[in-house]
Design a protein around this nucleic acid. Structure first.
Lengths: 248, 248
DNA sequence: ACATAAAAATTGGTTAACCAAATATAGTTT
DNA sequence: AAACTATATTTGGTTAACCAATTTTTATGT
């Protein structure tokens, strides 16, 4: 049955902490709080915003992670020295940061993995190689044993490559995307019958390129591997999207 | 490529929340907590780990951001369905995630910006173009007015390009890196006398490429721009590194 | 007047207590 | 025995209270 009243798709109410972040942003953009200034005490802010101190702390914690605030224990929290313009742009992005955009997720993953595999081919140690090879074999075995999914084993393969890139930032970013990636891929029902075997062959090509430390070959092999996933994902997402709409 | 010896790790004592994350990781890797299971109540965990509930909540919040836990209000918190292997890898990375690795930071930024500028050249609207042009002019004016830094105006230029990429994930990742990037660039004293003028010329080339929607030209122009910063940064960091060591 | 020290106030760090929603349990009815 | 309901319990959500380190103020001595 069709319910028109409940058209809310993943509408998530703004969390209390995000609301505080928005308030702090306003304090800064309106000039009441300048770069380098000390924030009012957490208690003051919590009263000013009419909310518990926990949420103020949560907001501060988040902004600290993004490098916009710096807290000195038992002393105070300070706004970074960045210009108002920069701070404003970053805060705006923090509030609306989500990994729900399917296409953006796949696309970003594509480019990050290309970067990672090139670095990995250049820098991999023998240990890295062994780990990647092991992950590849696990994936093959899982498929041979009849499992039609093995998305996770696939991801382990990619994780090992990311680690071999010797770039902690690139690695972390890939790691951040992986859970949502898996979720979307599984939902898209990407893994078909033939897909597994082709993926195995693709993995082997990537592995060989890394072994030979052939950067451009590694890039090419990974691009081919991800391209296929990308295409299938798009198709799968399209149908999935239609299904979801029908469910309303 | 030159491998700089790892600098003294800024001795950061493991935060209480990170300690909890480590404990939770152990619970999962040891099999006491399986994928899909419900976590013990926050009160139970806080007592079990001998710490306040706040820290348990902070840890859960962090793991939720990374997609490893999912909390149902007033009901319970559940471990994601991801395999233990994947969870283990991601948690390990969360704990040691920091943006302190200078080379990794610059390198990751380089690749992200190349990706962003290619997408921006392809997808930019007229509004995007105007914003980027405006940021570029602001940068030029700041330099003309005698300021020798203008690192922040430079970054605004890059932020606008990231927004024009129409990929929220890529944009967010660039935004996350920017504060640390600025900090390192300023410390490296990159901005010399001639640097400013060259940067202006480089910006213009990037802008032109985006205007013409010439993807490969945009990539080339951005690569040239970032390459120079990269080289100078390395040198600046090397000396800075020596200075810091001397300060001990 | 200035320097120094003691005490009071303020800060973020941490824990405990309270609340409403969700769930499990006991009781009642059929 | 099964199904429904009222009640008690457990849960995460939220706030208030306490703590120790720090900063500011005040008092004191020279």
């Amino acid at each position: 049955m069709i319910q028109l009243t409940e058209t809310k798709k993943s509408i998530k109410p703004e969390s209390p902490a995000d609301k505080i972040i928005g308030q702090l942003k306003h304090l800064i953009t309106s000039g009441q709080l300048k770069p380098g200034d000390r924030l009012p005490a957490e208690r003051v802010l919590s009263e000013k915003f009419g909310v518990g101190r926990s949420y103020v702390r949560e907001a501060i914690l988040k902004l600290e992670f993004y490098g916009l605030l710096r807290t000195n224990p038992q002393s105070g929290t300070y706004v970074s020295g960045l210009s108002i313009n920069v701070i404003d742009n970053i805060i705006s992005d923090i509030i609306k940061f989500n990994k729900d955009d399917f296409n953006a997720l796949i696309e970003a993953r594509y480019h990050l993995e290309i970067t990672a595999v090139k670095l990995a081919a250049e820098r991999r140690t023998e240990e890295d190689l062994a780990e990647i090879k092991s992950a590849s074999e696990d994936y093959e075995n899982k498929l041979l044993n009849g499992a039609d999914g093995a998305v996770e084993e696939d991801m382990i393969f990619h994780i090992k490559i990311a680690k071999a890139s010797k770039n902690s930032v690139v690695e972390s970013m890939i790691l951040i995307l992986i859970p949502d990636l898996i979720k979307n891929i599984v939902e898209s029902k990407i893994c078909g019958e033939n897909r597994g075997k082709r993926a195995v062959a693709e993995h082997r090509k990537v592995l060989e390129a890394i072994e030979k430390q052939d950067v451009s070959l590694a890039e090419q092999a990974m691009a081919a591997h991800l391209d296929e996933i990308w295409q299938i994902s798009k198709a799968g997402f399209a149908t999935q999207h239609i299904i979801k709409q029908a469910e309303l």
